[in-house]
Amino acid sequence: MATLANALTVSQSYPQWLQQQSDTALLQTRFNDGSSVAFSLLTHETSIAGPAVVESVQTEAKPT
């Protein structure tokens, strides 16, 4: 469902953080009804993911 490689840690300096940032660092969830949401690790914005984003999802969340 999510990759936490870009999650912020308290010991991270600004230059270290800056190096790791990319516009595409997203957490994504694809729901079991097919709809999808994304969270940008850069901007901290949440959005309903469009088809383009959905297609790039690597692993799906497990339905319960």
């Binding site: 999650a7 957490l27 969830t29 729901f31 949401v37 309903i48 993911a49």
Partner: peptide, 25 residues
């Protein structure tokens, strides 16, 4: 749609913004 429900819940949350990635997960 679950994505809509998600957005409404996030909007009605007191601290979704603070929790960032943890909140999303």
């Amino acid at each position: 749609p679950k994505a809509d429900a998600f957005m409404h819940l996030a909007y009605n949350s007191f601290n979704y913004n603070v929790l960032a990635d943890e909140g999303f997960t």
